[in-house]
Nucleic acid binder design. Structure first.
Lengths: 255, 255
DNA sequence: TCGAATTTGTGCGTATGTATC
DNA sequence: GGATACATACGCACAAATTCG
């Protein structure tokens, strides 16, 4: 049985004291030299032990200053949930409920459906669609990206062909579709966890391969079953929780 | 302006060639010594560059053998969705629909609710609960972990107090609750993307910090609104997609 | 079977740039 | 502004694992 390497032993020891609460967020940790003395190894071993904990997110290092216990910041999670009859932007409304200011940038252009989008919208590859790219910001920092596709065949003759222009801008897909007489009900969402691509990391201000929540959302016309909008939504994993289902109302039981 | 450190330059160079496709999954990469020669630095710098890429999940290292480009393995996504009136294990049923064999291991024990579980179950901290740990396997490889908590106050007098023992084992929470006359409806699920902890990575056979889909699920008694079960579910991000909502039935529109 | 060559993993000492007082 | 403490990066030496003849 091989003994674990000393730098792992030191890291494990410190990890235990941090998660156990003995060392509190903000506490200054021993310098790498001091750590080496305590365990009878060279400073570089202490440095490597710290590098493990930094990678795990338990410790932050400040060049020339020292290592510090990092706050277990579960930085207020943003909550994403479906809002059945919203008449405001679901995103802005959600942010407001959480005491933040939600804004977004967008860009629309016509495009043709590739194979994947065509499949999701039940149209033919090459059919015209309106594609809109979104960047969502909370308190001016980007937290969510989205790309939306709508078949021109659905909205082309209406004044909502551009999702973010005219009197019906910024109210969300469900409300916009109601304008042209389409009731969409709840969307179907396919949820995945994966690492951020480089482009996503760049846009969201996170490191590549950091976990993101990725949702493929599709709205259907409830009357006919026809897909009317589909979107790829990418959210910072450390900032979002997506909630599905509702807590029942009546709570008349005894605790 | 400080130049980036040589080990970061090397890592960035290799990263570009990997994501660009010049280096393909499975390819053997230069040894750290060779890498050092190529860039005119010592082997330790090459080793450090590789450690960065290993941490990002782009490269795997095999002691004594070399460094290899890691496969972007997108192996058959498993689909997780709610099954309203299943009378079989939802997990096994889902796996079977996808042509795989789903099995699981479990271990139950009584415990007391900590603050978080107590909050989710609307009971008091310290109240007794039945805790069950699950490891789910598909074709003998672990793909999902779960920890479930049920208040003893709900199941304690019944023959389903042990989730995985007796005639009602392995049928899922909803079906088990029906046995004692509780209709639970759809659960509430809070979905997050985060990096795997060390323990999770170990159990799931992935690297630490690899993305996992993490779901906090709670079932409620529909009649009273009382929570009757809550669970933490951890799934390999590269193997699972969770689906919410249903595609409408009728598709009588013209393409 | 075995041993030599190759390769990664780990520890150490030192030089350098940074932060703090 | 200077002195000191500190983290970071690098080159080197040795151990452990793998491969191959």
């Amino acid at each position: 049985m091989a003994d674990p390497a000393p730098y792992l032993v030191i890291a494990e020891d410190l990890r235990g004291r941090i998660v156990g609460g003995e060392l509190e967020p903000g506490d200054r940790l021993p310098s790498v030299a001091e750590l080496g003395r305590q365990y009878g190894v060279s400073p570089s071993v202490g440095a490597r032990a710290y590098s493990v904990l930094v990678q795990e997110g338990l410790v932050i290092s400040r060049h020339g200053a020292g290592h510090y216990v990092r706050g277990q910041e579960t930085p207020e999670l943003l909550v994403r949930r479906h809002r059945p009859r919203s008449e405001d932007s679901p995103f802005a409304q959600g942010a407001a409920e959480q005491g933040a200011v939600g804004t977004w940038r967008h860009e629309s252009a016509t495009a043709v459906a590739d194979a994947q989008v065509a499949d999701r919208l039940s149209i033919r590859e090459g059919d015209p669609v309106m594609r809109t790219e979104y960047v969502y910001l909370v308190d001016d920092s980007p937290v969510q990206l989205a790309t939306s596709w709508e078949p021109i065949a659905v909205t082309g003759q209406s004044m909502i062909v551009l999702p973010e222009a005219g009197p019906y801008a910024g109210i969300g897909v469900a409300a916009r579709m109601r304008v042209i007489g389409i009731d969409v009900g709840e969307p179907v969402e396919r949820v995945r966890a994966r690492g951020a691509t480089r482009a996503e990391a760049q846009a969201l201000g996170i490191t590549p391969a950091a976990p993101v929540l990725f949702i493929e959302r599709t709205y259907y016309d409830q009357a006919t079953g026809r897909p009317v909008e589909t979107a790829d939504i990418t959210m910072r994993g450390d900032r979002w929780v997506a909630v599905y289902g509702q807590v029942p109302e009546g709570r008349d039981f005894q605790v």
